[in-house]
């Protein structure tokens, strides 16, 4: 399946990936050939097959409702790009 530049732009935007326009032809080519590979799946009839999300066929284990974590803000924020007054800073969020 051959992808258009607009397809790549759409997924790149959804994934918030900045793509260098110079790389665009390469991405179009490569993603199209990956889709060709993936399209081999279409040869199989899977009408009655149950999807498998997980190799483990068990139920979710539940955790007791206990507070086990302590404040580690200082340690966590030591590796943050920009913090002030205990807050992570980002460019202004518009509502």
């Amino acid at each position: 399946m051959s992808l258009q530049q607009s397809d790549i732009e759409k997924v790149a935007h959804l994934a918030r990936l900045g793509i260098d326009p110079a790389d665009m032809p390469e991405h179009i080519k490569n993603l199209s050939s990956i889709l060709d590979l993936v399209d081999q799946m279409n040869a199989v009839d899977t009408e009655s097959v149950m999807p498998m999300a997980h190799p483990v066929d068990t139920a979710q284990r539940l955790r007791p409702d206990e507070v086990t974590e302590t404040d580690q803000r200082e340690q966590f924020q030591a590796i943050a790009p920009q913090v002030e007054a205990g807050l992570y800073l980002v460019p202004k969020v518009m509502e």
């Binding site: 397809d7 790549i8 997924v11 790149a12 959804l14 994934a15 918030r16 990936l17 900045g18 793509i19 260098d20 790389d23 390469e26 991405h27 490569n30 993603l31 990956i34 889709l35």
Partner: peptide, 22 residues
């Protein structure tokens, strides 16, 4: 978002993120 991720990830990672998003 776009520049941090665009600069931080290499081509193969970008490819797979785009493939998966698609």
């Amino acid at each position: 978002y776009k520049r941090s991720r665009g600069e931080g990830f290499g081509d193969e990672v970008k490819r797979r993120i785009m493939m998966g998003t698609y």
